[in-house]
Design a protein around this nucleic acid. Sequence first.
RNA 1: GGCGAGGUAGCUCAGCUGGUUAGAGCGCAUGAUUCAUAAUCAUGAGGUCGGCGGUUCAAGCCCGCCUCUCGCUACCA
Length: 677
Amino acid sequence: MKEFKRYTVTTALPYANGPVHIGHLAGVYVPADIYVRYLRLRHKDVIFIGGSDEHGVPITLKARNEGVTPQQVVDRYHNIIKESFKKFGISYDIYSRTSSQIHHETAAEFFKTLYDKGEFVEKISKQYFDEAESQFLADRYIIGTCPKCEYEAAYGDQCENCGSSLSPEELINPRSVISGNKPILKETKHWYLPLDKYENWLKQWILEEHKEWKPNVYGQCKSWLDAGLFPRAVTRDLDWGVKVPLHEAENKVLYVWFDAPIGYISATKELRPDWEKYWKDAETKLVHFIGKDNIVFHCIIFPSMLKQEGSYILPENVPANEFLNLEGDKISTSRNWAVWLHEYLEDFPNKQDVLRYVLCANAPETKDSDFTWKDFQARNNNELVAILGNFINRALVLTHKYYDGKIPVPSEITDKEKEIREEILKIKSDLEKNIENYKFREALKDFMQISRIGNKYLADTEPWKLIKTDSERVKTIMYYSLQLCAISVVLGEIFLPFSMEKLRNMLNMEKTDWEDVLKFDLLKPEHKINQAELLFEIIDDAKIEEQLNKLAKTKEMNESSAKTVSPQKEEITYDDFVKQDIRVATILEAEKVPKADKLVKLLVDTGIDKRTIVSGIAEYYKPEEIIGKQVCVLVNLAPRKLRGIESAGMILMATDKDGSLKFVSPENLTANGSVIS
RNA sequence: GGCGAGGUAGCUCAGCUGGUUAGAGCGCAUGAUUCAUAAUCAUGAGGUCGGCGGUUCAAGCCCGCCUCUCGCUACCA
C-alpha cells in the first residue's frame, strides 16, 4: 500500500435544514471519527474537515414558511448540529459552514477559474418565471396539481402525496409559491459542466485505477459511467447562495451541489494558512466519508471539478456506507422517524460511547442495517457492561483488594502470559488492517477481544483462589490483567473516547504511544492507580420502553395525518364538465407493454369503436384478469404516443390513499358506449 | 424494463485468486465458578450458504435462468 505524507479527511456536509440523526452518524461521522482518531494516534499528519451545507432551495422555502430569513434558518441548525457533534466527540479540526465569507470567495473563485479556462458550456433554456415578483422559480417554488394522483399541492420536482418525481412542466395548473400567480415560461442562460467530456479519464481513473473501492461505490460509479454522463447546470436563478462572479449573471447563484463540496476546501483554508498542501500535493491522501446518496457527487462530479480546475488532487478513496433503518422502517426527517442526536444526548446523558459503540458495531458497511432499541440495550448490557466494563472492574477491584491500588511487581511469566502477548500482537495488527481498510465493525470486534482475553485469563488462573497459596503468581496475573486494561485504553480510545479517558484517569495513566502497547509495561510496578468506578451501567427495560413509546407516538401521528383528503378543486361550470366525453367500455384484450414496469396495452370496445389505450396500471392489475371487465373511458382526450404505442383515451381510475389504482366500473352490465354524466 | 448492491446458523454479520468436517458475536441449552454491574468461563445444539440448472476431480465462491430486498434509471394522461 502506498505511504502518504498526510491525510485530508472530509465528512459529508449535513444540510442545515434539520438536525443530525443516528443514520448520519452511523454512516458517516462515527466511522470518519474513528479513522481520524486512529491516524492521529499514529502520529500521522491529518486534518478532519466538516461543516454545514447551507444553501439551496429547501432552506429558502423553510425560511419563507417560518417567516424568517434563510440565514436565520441555517444559523439555528448550524448551531444545533455543531454543538451535538462536539458533545458527541466527533473530533473535527474545523466544523465550518458554507454561508461564510471565505467559502463564498473560494467557491466563486473556483467557478471563475473553470470559466476562464472555458470549461463550461452555456445554454439557454425556458424556466418558469413569476412576473409579479420578477424572479425565476426553482422547481420547489412551483406548486400545482400532480398529473398522477391529482394531489393539488405537488411541488415542481416531486409530489409528496404519491411520491412520484416530476418536472415543473408536468404540473397541471402551476402556481408560484411566492405570489400564487400563474408563472410564465421565460428564457434564461445557465452554465453547465460538460461531464460527458470527462467520461474517458473518469473511466480510467475509477474503473481501472480504483478497483479497490467498496463494491457498492465501484458498482454505482460503473453504472453511471456505463449509462453515459450529461452536462449538468452549475448555476441557478436564485438569490440564496454563492453569487455567480460574472457581470451577465446577476441574480444567479452557484447550484448548491457545485458549491457544497468546495466547502471542504474553504474550511481547510479557514483552518490553516498552508491549506494548499492538503489539497494539491500528490503525497496527500484525500478521503471522503459519505452516505450512499452522495456517491455520484463525490466519485464523479466533484473529482471532475477538481481535475478540470487543474491544481487539485483527487480522492484516494470514498468509503460510502449504506443506510441505517430505525426499527425496520426507513429513517425519515419529514415523518420524524429518527433518533435525533441532540435528543439522544439529553435522554442518555454521558452515554455518547454507548451510541458510538452500537452504531459502529451495527454500521451499514455492506448493506442497509437496522437500529433497534432492543439491540441497543443488548449491546450495552451484554457487551459493554458484561465484557468490557466487567473485566476492567474485576482487574481494578482485585488490585485494590490485594495491593492497595499499587501495580504489583510481576514474578516469572508462564506460557499463559506468552500466549496473551501473542494474541495482543495479532489483535493490534488486525485492528490496524481493518481500520485502514474501512472495516470499522471488524476493528471494533478486535478491540473487544482484549477484554474477552482478560476475562478468560482471570477465569483460568483464578487469582482469588491462588492468593491463599501462591501470592507470587498472583502478582504476575494481576500485572498482566492491568496491562490489558492499559492496552484497552490506548487501542479503545478511537472507538470509545469518553470511557477510555475515564479509564485512563482511573489507571492514573499518562498519554502513551500506540506502538508501546506491545511492551506490556504501560503501567509500571509500584504505580498507584485511582479508585475504581463503573465504566458502563446496565440500561433497564423502562428506559428502552420510553424510547419505543416515543416512536410509537410518532407512528400514530403519521398515520392520522396520512388520512388527509386532497381539497376540492376550483369551481367549474356545467359547460366545462360536458366537454368531457366519458363512456362505458369493455376491455377486450390486455397485455403488458414490454420494457415498461407500469404500462398495460388495452384494446377496449367503447361502443363507438374498438381502440387501443395504454394505461399505467400494471402494478395493480394482471392483464389476463381484467379482460371482459367494464370500465369508464374518457374517449375524446387527444391521442398520445406512449412507448411508441398510440393511446386514444384514458381509463378512469380511483387513486386510493396509498396511491394504488382501482377501476371505476358501472354497478351492473351496461351497454358499451353508454354516456356517463 | 435497464443498471448497481445484497440474499450464509433464531438475530447481526465474516468467508482471500473455487480445495479437507462452512466461521464469529449475540441469543438458546447444559455444566463450572464467585474477584466482578445475576456479570464471567467451558461445552453443546442449530445452516440443502435465496431457488433451479451448468462448468469442474472439486463451488457459498465461476456461468445461465428465476425469485426476494435496497438504490439509481426508463415508463405513468
